[in-house]
Amino acid sequence: MATNISFILNGDEISYEVKDHWTLSHLLREEMGLIGTKEGCGNGECGACTVIVDKLAVNSCLYLAIEVEGKIVETIEGLASTSGALHPIQQSFVKNGGIQCGFCSPGMIMSSKALLDKNPDANHEEIKHALAGNICRCTGYVQILESVEAVKNMGGQNE
């Protein structure tokens, strides 16, 4: 079965025919070619596939595409400005060594964005809590936490 759904993706209104059994990560990556969102485990264990739906960070590998009907979806592709300038969180990850191989980065950054959009002054514990579902096999997490902390000091980050 296929159904036509409408939703907002990175600010643009989208209408797409989706199969019932597609996950959101499948729709984004395999159908729309938005491969910034990664799929690691496919089972909710790693957070690589994290995107933001209606302001909440969710794992797109366990989200049916058909269920984003009417919702607002943000992926890593929507973060940089139209001129190509990176979002402050992305800049901070680059500057503070929050990225090594980069596989976990889109998920880490989307989880961080969902947190900072809601709570720009999040403290260390709150950051750790918000990123607890995201696994990184390279950095050892310290630089990632530092990167998110550093965003707070960059000022005017949310846009």
Partner: peptide
């Protein structure tokens, strides 16, 4: 339960 991103919201 699990981690914020998956289990708590979904």
């Amino acid at each position: 339960i699990g981690a914020v991103t998956i289990q708590h919201y979904r």
